[in-house]
Amino acid sequence: MEGVIRPGRMDEDRFDRSRRIEWLDVDAIFGTRVLMVGAGALGNEVGKNLALSGFRKVTIVDMDRVVGSNLNRCLFFTTEDSEGRRFKAEALARGMERIGEGLEAEVVTEPVERAPSDIFARHDIVLGCLDNIVARMHVNSNSYHASKPYIDGGMDGLLGKVIIGRPPEGPCLQCGMNSSHARVAGIRFSCTGADVVFHEPRLAAEITTTSVISAVMVREALKFASGREDLLLSNAFYYDGRLNISEELEISLDPSCPVHVR
């Protein structure tokens, strides 16, 4: 019965401690539709945080399969997944459904460029856990034009960043790019090792950096889902784990950025 005080009752509610955080709207989080692109190291950590935070409607896009070198930093991947070359998106979905109450994960095992054309419009927020600039640009522009906030994470060893695009106003991910991004746009900065279609340098990857960056990404998603856009990062968060320094950087809107030219 509602309103009856019963000792210990609050400990039966999985989300009781979240409900005690004033700015979190747990019921709104339950109903927020999240599109995750990328199911590697960052995707696993983001997936864990999403599932435990109460997000229940998640679509995961990733074309890659699990390999052995993923296993030291991907919570939801198993040796069996690696030996069976299971799709990362499927393994991640299975893990998120296991720990997330009421969570239903839809899986797309194609490159994001080949995902259904309405996939951005069908979601409320987009999280990028990608390893290459071309895919980032695709997700960034499609999110912007579908008027969906895009939270992009990136890492290299002990360095990490989070950039937020908040259409219809403000800069996007591509506004902060320059000729050095164009030069390496076709390269995958990947920590994995199989089923690749183009040149791929092996990247230093470290789980504690992944944890920091994923935490910032999902925290921003929680703010958005809870209607607290006033608390969001203005655009870029930069983390240097060598010195444990983090700071907010400013990217200004580039009027010549193709995403903004109509």
Binding site: C175, S179, V184, I187, P201, L249
Partner: peptide, 27 residues
């Protein structure tokens, strides 16, 4: 970016130039 990355033999990758908190536009 091009000159500095080449001169200091930086790994192939993406870089930005910042002045304080501000990321400067490439062009």
């Amino acid at each position: 970016i091009e000159s500095a990355a080449t001169f200091w033999s930086k790994d192939m990758g993406a870089y930005v130039v910042r002045k304080g908190k501000k990321v400067l536009r490439g062009s």
